[in-house]
Amino acid sequence: MFRLFLQELRFRRIAIIGWGLGLCFFPVVYVGLYPSFADQMAGFQEILDLAFYQAMGISMGSFEDYMASTVTNLVPLILCIFAVANGTGTLAGEEDEGRLELIVTLPTPRWQIVAVKAAALVLALLIILSIVAAGAALTLQVISSQIDTNVTPKNVFFSLLGALPLVLAVGMISLFLGAFSPSRRVASVISAVVVLVSYLGNNLSGLIESLEKIGPLFLFHYYKATGEALKKGQSFENLLALSIITLVAFGLAMFFFQRRNITVGAWPWQRAVIQS
């Protein structure tokens, strides 16, 4: 099982390094450029108060808000792309490519295959997020003397790592959809819709009073990209909620993969229609 895990990491190594370094560039640029336009930010605030920007979760009144609106708001959203691509690619993608047949015919139980692939996905997301968090924290360390803020590099590092439960939930939902739906394409589309609806729905539910009650239905409701969260971290309740969603999605992935007809590419209810 450990050997399979190592192989899974090996297959992902280029994606991990690429995404880690590529995504690291994003906070490095945003944090690194802040001193050069910090004075102009106040002038933008009137525009950023528009509902559109608020729906996008963007507010830039202070460095904390700027960081929350750009780095801690958008990094998890972008990393969700990796989580969806990797989550759906892990089972459904390999099945589409015809390589999963080689794996499931090994003397390894299917639940172990799902567990190993899920563990590799978790580790991949953790490594990428750690690289990004470290890049952002180091950049803040470099520019800290040029800006007036009590946000520390440590705050930034752990704040970005705090997005891990959210991206794990997205990754695990994608893994489950890969085990459930007939193809990677279908799983990817559904996963992407879940992410986008969650992101925009959560932001809109914070703006529109009548939508407030449905806020908890959205994944991003359980991740706060705010100046306050930047300093204090995510709440235990949100962490718990996302952990439960992740575990349920993982359990469903196991359940459906255990019953899946590999190579057939069908919905679960299409698997056994007996002609009498």
């Binding site: 080689l102 003397p107 190579t263």
Partner: peptide
């Protein structure tokens, strides 16, 4: 008992897709 069985089998799939 697929796992115990597959320990003793060499299998060549018809649609072979490798890494």
């Amino acid at each position: 008992e697929g796992v115990a069985i597959r320990e003793r089998i060499g299998y060549l799939p018809g649609e072979l897709n490798l890494y």
